[in-house]
Structures are given as C-alpha cells and as structure tokens.
Write a protein that binds this DNA or RNA. Sequence first.
DNA 1: TGCTCCTCTAGGGATTCCCTAGGGTTCCCG
DNA 2: CGGGAACCCTAGGGAATCCCTAGAGGAGCA
Lengths: 305, 305
Amino acid sequence: MLSLHQLTCFLATYEHRSLTRAAEELGYAQPSVSEQVRTLEKHLGVPLFRRVGRGVVPTTAADTFRPHAEKVLAAADEAQSAVASIRSFETGTIRFGMFGVARLYGGAGLVADVLERYPGVRVELVGRHSMDVQENLRRGHLEAAMIAVAGLSSEGMAITPIARDELVYVSADPARLASPVTAKRIAEAPLVMAESTYRDTDSARIVLRRMLHEAGYNPGTRIEVEDVETAVELVGRGLADTITNKGAAVQLLPRLAPDAGWVSLRPRLYDTLAIVHRAGATLSPAARLMIELATQRIQAIIEPV
Amino acid sequence: MLSLHQLTCFLATYEHRSLTRAAEELGYAQPSVSEQVRTLEKHLGVPLFRRVGRGVVPTTAADTFRPHAEKVLAAADEAQSAVASIRSFETGTIRFGMFGVARLYGGAGLVADVLERYPGVRVELVGRHSMDVQENLRRGHLEAAMIAVAGLSSEGMAITPIARDELVYVSADPARLASPVTAKRIAEAPLVMAESTYRDTDSARIVLRRMLHEAGYNPGTRIEVEDVETAVELVGRGLADTITNKGAAVQLLPRLAPDAGWVSLRPRLYDTLAIVHRAGATLSPAARLMIELATQRIQAIIEPV
DNA sequence: TGCTCCTCTAGGGATTCCCTAGGGTTCCCG
DNA sequence: CGGGAACCCTAGGGAATCCCTAGAGGAGCA
C-alpha cells in the first residue's frame, strides 16, 4: 500500500542524496527511512536509488517519480489546510437551523455578523419552520438550530431556552386595543392566523390553543395564511385581527400596517426561543459560533429567559 | 499522520453514507473503516460525519474536504501509473553508457531500436570515452554501459565481454597494405592516433603499446587527434597512417578516405567490447533492455566473443 | 413491541513502525 | 597502505497500528 510517509521519505532522500541526512531532517533513525524507501521501491517495482559507496544516486525512475510525489504531498497539505481553515472559519460553509419568524429578529443581522468576522465563509440558514428544523436535526442533516418550542419535551434533543417572546393581539381597530385581550374576546374576534401548513405543530398556535381550551373555547380561525407578513397586511386593511409574536408585530406593523397597533393578552402568553441539538452531541466550532451570535442578537431584541 | 488509507475510507463512507457499505466496498470489516475515519477526524480536528441512528451524514467540513481528498488520491494514482509506465517503457528516460567509438557500430541504430519499440521513452547515451563511462559507473551515475576494455580487471565491476574488435592498420599507400603490419613497421611508420585526451587509458592504445613493448619498441606518435574521424581524414590525405578498430575503419574509409585501405596487424590485436556494471547490482528493466539491444547490434556487426 | 439495520466498544492476533547495535564498503588523509 | 569517518545495510525487539470477531446499544419501522 502506497503511503504518504513513503513519499516524504523518498523526497527527503532525493533532495539530500542521502538516507542519513534525510533521516536527520525527518527526525528518524536512518534504517527507518531506508525501510520506507525500500518498501516504496518494492511497491513500485522499480529501484529509485542506486546505493553507491557514499550516499545514494537517484535513478531515472526517481527523476520521473519525484514531481508526482511532490504533487501528492502538496495536495495532501492543501486538503489539510482547507479543513484547518474551516476550523478557524476562514472558509467553508456554516449551516444553522433557524425557524421562519426568527429571521425577523436576527436572521439577516446574524448572517452579516458572521460574514463580517469571517469573510471567507458561506452561511446557510435552513428551515422554514421550527418543525421542519426539528426534522432536519433528527435526521442529522443539521447540527444545531434555534427554534421556537411550545413545551420543552422533545426526545433525544437537548433544548436550551434563551429568550421568551410574548404573543400579542394585533388590530387596526383602536377599540380592540384598549385593554389586554382575553380568551373570550379572542374566541369572538375575526382572526387571521399565519403558518397554515404547520397550524397543528406551530408553538405559538399550540400555546394559544391551550389557553383558549382552558378557558372553555374551541374556536375556528377565519383566515389561514402562510406568512406573518400576509397576516399583518390583512390586519392593516382592517379585514381581520391576528395574534403573533411581539417582535414580529413591532417590526412589521410600521411597514405593512401603519394604522394598526398591538396589545398584550390576558393572561400574557409567551413563545419560547431555544437552542436545540441532539442530546449528547459535541458541537462543532461552527455550531458554537452560530449559537453564540444568534443568542446575543435575539437577547438584544427580546426578553431573555 | 495523515494517510491515503484514511482518505480512501473517508471517500467510500462519504459516497455510501454508511460505514458498513464503505467497508463492504473496500473489503474490510466495518469497525476498521470506522477507526480510520475516526482517526482522520481526530487528525483534522473536525467531525466529518454525524452519526445518526441509521447511517452517517457528512458535515459541511466533509463537503469541503471531499474534493481535496479526491485530488490527493488521484495524484497518488497518477504517480504510480507514471512509474508503471516507466517499467513497461511507455515513458521515462533510459540512460545507458556507451563509449565514443561504439556509436559508430550501433549508437544511432540502438537509439532508433529503442524509440521504435517504445515510442514514449527518452534515451540518453552518455560518456565520451570508456574511461569516462567507467567513472560514471563507479560514482553510480550510470547503471550499466558498454565499453571497450583492455584487460578484464576493474575492481567492483562485473564485466561481460560480448564481442572483439580487431585493430587494423589504415593507410592510403597500397604498398603498406600489401601484408600484415608488424611491430617493426608500426614503430617506423608516421602515425596519427586518435583519443589524445585518453591516450594513456584508451584500451586500443594500451593493447597496441603492449604489443610494441613486447617487440622491443617504444615509439612516439607523430600526430595526436581526438576524433577517429579526424585521424582517418588525415590518412586519406596521405599525411599519415593510423591504427584503429576495424569496424571504425570499415565505416569511415568510404566516406572520409576513399583511396585508403586497411590491413591486419601481425600478430592480430583485438579490442574487447564488454557490458560493465557494478558487481552484485540487480539491473533495472531499462538497463537489461539496453544491454540486450546493444549486444544484438554489436554482434551483428563485429565478431562475437 | 419486536425485528432489522447500523454504529460503537472490547479485546486480541498479525503486521508495521521505528528504534539500537553492529557489520561491511568506500573514501579520505596521514 | 592503514586507520578513521561516512554511509549503507542487516538483525532483533518493543511499541504502535491495523484489522479482525463478538457483542452491546440506539434508531427506525412494521
């Protein structure tokens, strides 16, 4: 079996015209280098050096082999430094899971942070929804993620809450914003709710449904849409009210529904943002970096746990 | 220490998304491949696969590493096949020692033979004189050679005589060619001799000097030149006679001295052509090829031993 | 829940790696 | 020409690695 070690010994010997000096350079005893070269010659089926009294003389086969050997070692070095630069975030791809709404809080800024500090990296924020992200985590396609969780129970996953995000009632009708909104009023209101695909698993929806259920209500939703943006826009047109994360409301209202406002629920409800990864996994440097940056950014915007 | 084996295991695992299938492909047990990959990860300082329930999933580090790993293995393959093609004479350089006069017998034809049979090779015929060649052999710069030897004693060298080449008297004067030339007549003749630089070590000169000495003569030479061609040309102009190898005379007279002829000496003298290499050395395929071809060619022209 | 698939750990035999010790040859120098 | 230095080799053995089998344990699926 050809080995890089053999090539190293060969090249050192070729350059020094001597096994002894090659061994010195490499920090081995002379017979060790001799053995490596002999093995290489045997493997190639061609003598590479002529042993002549004092020192060794390369054969024409050695002349031919040398540039190839150098190329192999150069490629090997390059391969290693390519990975080393990943480790120090000079290059490579950092993939991190992030659910849809979180981008409103920090997505773009987070990417900007990483790109500024490590100009060579590629960044991927994957996942359209917390559930989606969790699936990717489970399958191993994702190392870690920041997601919204309703409960704190997800088997085999380590969940670290980092912030909580209040759910607020958004309306274009000032009368409805005069006081905190109760379950009764929610049940009676014409609502547009986002995340239609994930309506059953979305954490905000779960929290809200639980609250309504405890109060004895079990309402249907009037309008279902995918994007929070769409929901807020509909609110802005006075067609419905919605309930969404406070952070999303703060960001989206001025732009999409300038005449609308928001108010807390009674009792107040919260969505929990957490870092999630497989339990027992040791995280890569890239993942730890993303976790740290994302946490900072989120906690600067919304209330830390 | 990075090894090619690790890279092979890594790539197989990457492609199959499975250690078990990689091991099957490579013909190892699964834990062996697992160990190689683990060692590689440790060496690189980065996890390459996420072990996830059924199978493994490459990390982004693995994505980055893969093309580099492939490049290293490709370079290694290329290095091996480069040498393999030397072994089969598809390419590479064949270096062979050949003394000056021998080119008259077979030099160009020998090169032509090799080039015809092995179109890709480079051929080097090195050495200006037998003594020169022997020095290169001794220093190891040359593996084997065909040279002219006066005696058969050269320490540490294996000498295999393959042909003998008569020394003849060349003259433009028909009277001098009427009968074999004796030591007396040589001593009295106006001679031009070639190989001025090597006059003391040239085998033909040694043989001739010995013969004259035994007959009681110790003559000086009238003219000394380097090339046999020059000597023959001077003979053609009637300025002197010369003594040279019969093969050289036969080849050169028609062209350089059309009016001159040659005759044997009395007693006849012979130069011995032999294959020489370091005693105890195992010859490379290239050297064996050259020896075979050179021997054939020489023996087709002059008298085999 | 039980079966299958896949990975990991454990442990041990075979091989390789790499050392020290010493023998042989070549070359240089007195 | 003989001794020393330089350099190669072989021999032998301890340590590390390679690679195997056996079996534990987790994940996915019916």
